[in-house]
Design a protein around this nucleic acid. Structure first.
Lengths: 219, 219
DNA sequence: CTTATTTTTTACAATATTCTTACAATACAT
DNA sequence: ATGTATTGTAAGAATATTGTAAAAAATAAG
């Protein structure tokens, strides 16, 4: 679950933001002042912080300075049309800067960009009852977690992204293993068997004799 | 005309790629740095971009981020054997990933797959109620899947691509089997019979006595 | 440094494909 | 028509490919 810390003293704005991020499945937590925000950031894990510049105690910039050791993407929110603020914010290492009043969609887009840059955006892939989350590297079947090794995971993701395409072992070696084919090897086969077994794909991850494999597209 | 943007700072590699894609009739444009690439992608229409990860100014991933709004298939090129790079690239939405040094044929194959996925190329061949998809390596008759062995598949595709042409056994041996005719053999015949039987082509895959076979064109 | 995990190799069993063989059916020439 | 050459067909042998388990090697974790 993507957790977003909303540091904003105007309760209406804060609630609006929380509702907006909830729409796309993010969990928003509201915090009304700077000092508390610093504490929360130190104690808990967050994916992004939306930081109002004007806060009742310490301002957003000060919060940023105090948490600068953390590797947390920050987007500043401000009512000021002040260019100086913007320069300040970016110099402090803010990921982005957005001026109120803003459109909810605009904010969501910015959040997505920041998350993607931080590689925290979970991209989900589905294949029937199997779900894959490339961010957390987890695979579930019927909601039950299936444990795949890294190679198996990469291999399966590759098949998902190339569903219904016949792929040769050479292609797999180069795409998943990252090197060119040298001599013959059963490595690919073994991993395919493993993925088949772990995910029960005996009927859908088919062998194309003398060619390679194909993951049949789900209807 | 299929336009391919080649973003690669090594001039030799870039020119090699350009020559390779020219062979199959694609137009390649070379661009040596990331910022210019972003501009080119914003201003002009491209079918695929080949994006080197290591560029003199901003890296390939950054280019990808900046053009992420565009719906342009991207294939990353990299010398790195780094899995992280790969995961990064794919997470950013790259269509594919290819490690240097690569074979020209391999690259062309990937480009074809990407173009096909973007529906800019067709991999389907039809013959009456029979449909062949060379990408997924499947054959259906009246929507029902027909299982052909590799040789049978290649043989049938060859006939489809040479419909209404009388082909000798020698020609078939050399085109489908890939070697020159040595002594007499019934191999070709047997496979033709097999294709006839499996696809019910008794009337259309005709024998030309003393010469070879011909797949009659569908009206 | 040891232990655990993952990846690769190895060896062999199970399958699938290709090719050969043998004979039947058909076409063709005289 | 009759014999010869060619092609159709089935069955099985030979070959090659893939499945699978388990050990060895490499890598990561403690």
């Amino acid at each position: 679950m993507t957790r977003i810390l909303i540091v904003e003293d105007d309760e209406n704005i804060a609630k609006t933001i929380k509702a907006a991020v909830a729409v796309v499945g993010y969990e928003g937590y509201i915090c009304g002042n700077g000092l508390e925000a610093v504490e929360l950031i130190r104690r808990e894990a967050w994916d992004v912080a939306l930081l109002d510049v004007n806060l009742p105690d310490i301002d957003g910039f000060e919060v940023m300075r105090r948490i600068s050791s953390r590797d947390l993407p920050v987007i500043f929110l401000t009512a000021r049309q002040n260019v100086l603020d913007k320069v300040n914010g970016l110099r402090l290492g803010a990921e982005d800067y957005i001026v109120k009043p803003f459109e909810a969609l605009e904010l969501l887009a910015r959040i997505e960009v920041v998350l993607r840059r931080a590689n925290k955006l979970s991209s989900r892939l589905a294949y029937g009852e199997i779900e894959v989350d490339t961010a957390s590297h987890t695979v579930t079947k019927n909601g039950k977690k299936v444990s795949l090794t890294p190679k198996e995971f990469d291999l399966f993701v590759f098949f998902l992204r190339n569903a219904d395409v016949a792929v040769t072992r050479e292609r797999l070696l180069s795409a998943v293993w990252g090197y060119e084919f040298e001599g013959e090897s059963r490595t690919v086969d073994i991993h395919v068997q493993q993925v088949r077994k772990k995910l029960g794909l005996y009927d859908s991850l088919v062998t194309i004799p003398k060619l390679g494999y194909r993951l049949e597209k789900k209807e």
